[in-house]
Design a protein around this nucleic acid. Structure first.
Lengths: 215, 215
DNA sequence: GTACGATGTTACTAGCGGTAACCCGCAGTG
DNA sequence: CACTGCGGGTTACCGCTAGTAACATCGTAC
């Protein structure tokens, strides 16, 4: 039937238009940060607001669509680092490095991803701590947990341990990366080494300072 | 001279009024989250907007004033946990627990502190990654770094190591805490133990899963 | 030819942060 | 007494935002 044929083509051109709009939005968001207005984005795309709303529903929808692309890209990157066939320590360092390289080379993207400007489709949840704080981080944590579960023999209750560690490590990466990107107190390699040391138990291993009350 | 006398009293009553306004603001922020509007806060305080602006300059100023109180309170809490005269492991666990207890018992406050809704007094910095992401976390990281530097003998370059670890650990705490508060997959005690294990190098210590490609 | 559907517009609403201009009451001063 | 200064308070506004209705236009399928 022609119906499906035509609707198929329409679908594809619609998708194409949507991609164009997303690219315009991306240019503006990268330029103006999370304060980018729908008007500005529409202007960049050479159109007016209502069209954006037809395509993405609301601002949150547009932002989510935009975030999805980069999130997927970053996750793919990290997955390859995580799959490198080397020693565990090297693999951890490679993953940390991949993340830090990503946020270093595209800080605006990173910043945007971390603050998708609300819009959880769930109004009035009443207990939505971290509504802003990036679904990206949650996805990263879960992915890492999966890898840990797959590769490590954690014994009974290991699944919970893996998830705690996954989210903990991602949080560590994020927190340290945020600070590092802002202050740039050292090279990326140094940061990676220090963080890997931390994960390798150096905090517990180093000696107390002589004469101090211990730690 | 009466001048100073009067201006002194005026000062104190002004301070008092300011505290009242802050308390009203707190009630609203705790009720409405970061979306609390200046109108709503003014209404709660029984006045109108311009007065708020006279006292706090702009919305960011009010939010900063509000955040400062809780930030100080939380930091004081953590400091005592950090100063408990016990084993290093116990101290780390106590600190983790103190943080988690705080965010568990007052999630709205926690959420508010993590997203002080922009307003860095510096418009157009152009490179302000993490403008939203809580000065609280940065303060926490620095405090922890100080403690680590004081207590541990990290050798040459130890100051940098301490800062990396400080921000890394705070990030871990934050990331894991955020996830835990949202999903509640285990008790607080369990979470604390797992995180401390992670810091104690268990990630490096556990065995590969039998038959797997290693990790 | 005509009905549909997607693309696009102008013109609007409601609410936000923030401000200017004005009013009132009260301390201190000639 | 009148008069001046000043902090607390108000109404009414500005410019902006996200989001929406109503209307126009073009290409295609029947």
């Amino acid at each position: 039937m022609e119906r499906t044929e035509r609707s198929g083509r329409q679908q594809s051109t619609t998708e194409h238009r949507r991609r164009e709009l997303l690219e315009a939005a991306e240019r503006i968001v990268l330029r103006d940060g999370p304060d980018a207005s729908m008007n500005a984005i529409a202007a960049e795309a050479g159109i007016t607001k209502p069209i954006l709303y037809r395509h993405f529903g609301d601002k949150g929808g547009l932002y989510r669509a935009l975030a999805l692309r980069h999130t997927d890209a970053l996750l793919a990157n990290l997955a390859t680092a995580l799959d490198a066939p080397v020693l565990r320590r090297d693999r951890v360092e490679a993953t940390l490095d991949a993340y830090l390289l990503a946020i270093e080379s595209q800080p605006q993207v990173y910043r945007f991803l971390m603050h998708p400007a609300e819009g959880d489709t769930a109004p009035e949840t009443g207990f939505d701590v971290g509504r802003h704080s990036a679904p990206l981080l949650r996805r990263l944590g879960e992915e890492l947990a999966k890898v840990i579960t797959d590769r490590l023999d954690l014994g009974p209750g290991g699944e919970l341990t893996a998830r705690v560690w996954g989210h903990g490590i991602v949080g560590m990466m994020h927190g340290a990366g945020d600070w590092w990107l802002r202050e740039r107190p050292c090279t990326r390699e140094q940061l990676v080494t220090q963080l890997a040391d931390l994960l390798w138990g150096q905090l517990a291993a180093v000696e107390d300072r002589a004469g101090g009350p211990g730690f």
